[in-house]
């Protein structure tokens, strides 16, 4: 039977593919800086992340007889995010395993794009951290010698209320002269990517800002109102990278705009708490996963009031 077509007859040129392409473009500055900082192995890691993620998605969908969706580029984004979160010293098989967990275990077993309520890249990162800590935390400084180093987080986390002696300078944090995941260290490159995403209306600037504001607030609280300590928190670890590229993930967060902002704020606050209370430097990953689970509550709370209606009724989304 022919379905009658109905209005609107105009459609936006934006598609899932163009959105994911924009995210890849936004990841370009950090990707380039990864190679500049940590050498050609970073490039191998990134390409491996992308190809393995795309391949896993293709194979899974082929085996299960589902529609192949690798052309929407979302698997490529996930694979790149996975690769960018490891230090250059990580063995390459870790990247492949990371892609597998993200794409197959989280994304596809939940039912594919939009169906997963946990962030694939974050879950994969946290799980691998728990399983393989010594071999994926050999942090090195940028440069040809790959000198071992401690990450800045080790100077401020775990109950500390001031920046410990010997910590890298604030400038070094901003320009990425520190140890860390290959894509997470250069803050100006992350900001550049964020601005591009905001300009292309892929994300709302309020979400990463709220996340970092939450973390900043906790830094002020634990650091006895030290602006320097709080700023140091914002610039350390994966916080900024995750605030821009993970907290803004459509699938694992709430739907309503206001809910998304408060969800981001909560992630920031929770990150600060995890960093302070536990010997867990990767606090934001845990914070994101916890908030992923609580996202429907944020949506319920921030359901918008419909025009012409007093008050609102809450419908908790099931998926």
């Amino acid at each position: 039977m022919k379905r009658t077509r109905t209005s609107p007859f105009l459609r936006t040129p934006t598609s899932t593919r163009t959105i994911m392409r924009d995210v890849l473009i936004a990841l370009l500055p950090v990707s380039v800086m990864a190679v500049v900082q940590f050498g050609i192995k970073s490039l191998v890691m990134m390409l491996l992340g992308i190809t393995s993620a795309v391949l896993f998605e293709f194979l899974y969908q082929r085996i299960r007889g589902k529609r192949i969706t690798i052309r929407d580029l979302s698997a490529a984004v996930t694979g790149l995010l996975v690769a960018l979160s490891y230090p250059v010293t990580a063995p390459l098989w870790i990247i492949v395993l990371g892609s597998f967990i993200a794409i197959v275990v989280i994304k596809q077993l939940s039912g594919g794009i939009g169906k997963n309520n946990l962030n694939p890249a974050v879950f994969s990162r946290v799980l691998i951290k728990i399983l393989f800590t010594p071999i994926i935390t050999r942090w090195v400084l940028p440069g040809p010698d790959l000198m071992s180093t401690a990450t800045p987080l080790e100077f401020i986390g775990n109950g500390q209320t001031a920046i410990a002696q010997g910590a890298p300078e604030m400038n070094a944090l901003f320009f990425g002269v520190i140890g860390g995941g290959i894509g997470e260290t250069v803050k100006w490159a992350i900001i550049l990517g964020a601005l591009y995403l905001v300009f292309r209306r892929v994300i709302s600037l309020k979400i990463p800002l709220a996340t970092l504001a939450g973390l900043f607030f906790m830094g002020m609280l634990f650091g006895k109102s030290s602006l320097e300590f709080a700023t140091y928190h914002v610039l350390s670890g994966t916080a900024m990278f995750a605030a821009v590229f993970m907290v803004t993930d459509y699938s694992s967060g709430p739907l309503n705009h206001r809910a998304r902002v408060y969800y981001g704020l909560s992630i920031g606050i929770l990150t600060g708490m995890v960093r302070y209370l536990f010997a867990l430097p990767g606090g934001i990953g845990v914070a994101i996963l916890i908030m992923n689970i609580l996202a429907p509550i944020y949506d319920a709370w921030f359901t918008p009031r419909v025009f012409g209606h007093k008050g609102k009724r809450v419908v908790i989304e099931t998926r």
């Binding site: 979302s74 699938s251 967060g253 705009h257 918008p304």
Partner: peptide, 21 residues
């Protein structure tokens, strides 16, 4: 294709409905 939960329908609804839901 599948909904990616971008929420553009919600953000842009002039009467603040949640079309995807």
């Amino acid at each position: 294709s599948e909904c990616i939960r971008c929420a553009r329908c919600i953000d842009n609804c002039p009467v603040d409905l949640q079309p995807i839901i």
